[in-house]
């Protein structure tokens, strides 16, 4: 790639259910009502960039429930991380979580995942688009980011360029050590670590107990904004309505029906429901791949533990903000 600042990477043939361009997201604009965006499964995203030797925040495609078909436009190196999917290059199965080479004209397909929800397709150098507010992250509800900065998902015929990369930095067949590849199960119960925040103390003791002493289910009411849970014993707020407050990522909101909603990357910047806690990083990463019907249980941890988790991950992936 010497002498070129970018190269033609791929053309979308079929985008599947939802394929969006995502980098690490927008920061510093919450006060304008602009949400963060970025990859829902940050861990899979960070792994994909790490395996290719990309900058930790380089833009990738986030593919929800597979169905993506693309044509490579140049020789390059790609990797697909995230949910376990059938990945093929020119109809031949190839492994996910492993760097592979492509030549111009190769067809790469990502089928619907056996388990989990989201896959990340990264290319050496990372995808390029014109950023707005410092990011190319697609946020549909804000009409920001994406290939044309209109917040729209990718469509058939879209062609994406990628940044130049150092060929000596790319290692074909590179993959994480086996124990690092997150296992996604649709049958075993998830344990989501949480910290107590905001109105936690104002909930009645019984509501606080119900938060951690019952199994809840992930519902189909979920998107990049948030995930609704189903609890057999609703968690009730006995106080008057609260005044809208800023809404941190990972917050567990309790609406009047007592069924928790966990806020994800595209959540609105303010919220008017009481908040009882925030899901830790590892918990949020598990939730990023949790299909409807997945059972989960919350477990309280300390802020120090929750921060240690993130710090360790950021250090591992060489991510500085």
């Amino acid at each position: 790639m010497s002498g070129r600042s970018q190269y033609a990477a791929l053309r979308i043939e079929q985008p599947g259910l939802l394929a969006t361009l995502q980098d690490w997201g927008r920061f510093g604009h919450l006060s304008q009502g602009i949400t963060r965006g970025g990859p829902i499964d940050e861990r899979a995203f960070l792994w994909a960039n790490k395996l290719l030797g990309n900058k930790a925040t380089a833009a990738q495609l986030e593919i929800t429930l597979g169905g993506l078909s693309v044509t490579a436009l140049s020789h390059s190196f790609w990797v697909v991380c995230g949910a376990p999917v059938q990945l093929t290059k020119n109809q031949q199965p190839i492994p996910t979580w492993e760097v592979f080479s492509v030549e111009a004209g190769d067809t790469v397909r990502i089928d619907a995942p056996e388990r989990g929800l989201r896959s990340y397709l990264a290319v050496a150098g990372g995808f390029l688009a014109t950023p707005s507010f410092g990011s190319v992250a697609t946020v549909m509800r804000d009409g920001l980011g994406g290939l044309h900065d209109d917040g729209l998902p990718l469509r058939g015929g879209d062609e994406l360029n990628a940044g130049a990369y150092n060929t000596s930095g790319v290692v074909p067949y590179r993959r994480p050590q086996h124990q690092f590849v997150p296992r996604i199960s649709s049958t075993s119960e998830l344990c989501l670590p949480i910290i107590a925040t905001a109105q936690y103390e104002q909930f009645e003791a019984q509501a606080r107990q119900l938060l951690v002493q019952q199994t809840m289910q992930v519902t189909a009411k979920q998107d990049r904004m948030g995930v609704r849970l189903q609890a057999s014993e609703p968690i009730l707020w006995a106080q008057p309505q609260i005044i809208s407050e800023p809404l941190p990522l990972g917050t567990i909101q309790i609406p009047p029906d007592g069924q928790p909603i966990i806020m994800l990357n595209d959540c609105q910047t303010l919220g008017g429901y009481p908040k009882i806690g925030v899901v830790s990083w590892s918990g949020r990463m598990a939730l990023a791949q949790a299909t409807a019907g997945t059972s989960l249980r919350f477990q309280l941890i300390s802020l120090a533990q929750a921060q240690a988790e993130v710090k360790q991950a950021y250090r591992f992936f060489n991510l500085t903000l």
Partner: peptide, 11 residues
Amino acid sequence: IDVVAAYHSLM
């Protein structure tokens, strides 16, 4: 990293 003010609160 970011600061956002609402009615009676600021994050």
